[in-house]
């Protein structure tokens, strides 16, 4: 899975489709509260778009667009968004992930604050799922070898 395909057809079709797939994934994430889907499903679609890029354009180009380091940062920051919203509720004097209390700082009625809180949590979940899916696929296709490891190995002898 690591080579660039020499098939122009699949590459060009993937190139045209990928932006639309990504926008569809974001749609699924952000409309999770009044249509099917949500953070996990949208994150899977978003990860699938990057996987499509990897298997059609090869490992090197995919690494230029989305490296292991970036995937790690994304997965951590998604988790940070999720737990940060939960902790914010905790700090404001309510239960973990009880979004109603967010109305104190968002200056809206509690129902709307719940909707916004769920949206934020779903964005966090989506980012994490995307990054984790992509890094799992990355590990499978490289056999777990990261280029920085190889450089260190060469330096040590």
């Amino acid at each position: 899975m690591t080579r660039l395909t020499d098939d122009i057809i699949i590459r060009a079709v993937a190139r045209i489709m990928i932006p639309f797939i990504q926008i569809y994934a974001l749609y699924v994430i952000m409309h999770g509260h009044h249509s099917p889907g949500g953070g996990f499903q949208g994150g899977v679609i978003l990860g699938a778009s990057f996987i499509l890029y990897l298997i059609t354009h090869g490992l090197e180009e995919a690494r230029a667009r989305m490296s292991e380091l970036k995937a790690g940062i994304f997965s951590a920051s998604g988790l940070l968004i999720y737990s940060g919203i939960g902790l914010l509720c905790l700090i404001l004097g309510s239960n973990f992930l009880d979004y109603g209390r967010l109305s104190l700082i968002l200056k809206v009625i509690p129902a709307q604050a719940r909707s916004l809180g769920i949206l934020g949590v779903e964005i966090g979940v989506g980012i994490t799922v995307m990054a984790v899916m992509f890094s799992i696929f990355f590990d499978i296709s490289t056999g777990g070898i990261i280029p920085e490891d190889e450089e260190i190995k060469e330096e040590n002898g």
Partner: peptide
Amino acid sequence: VYALLNFLGTIT
């Protein structure tokens, strides 16, 4: 989503 994943699975 089904159409998308069908295409992706076949290609993979």
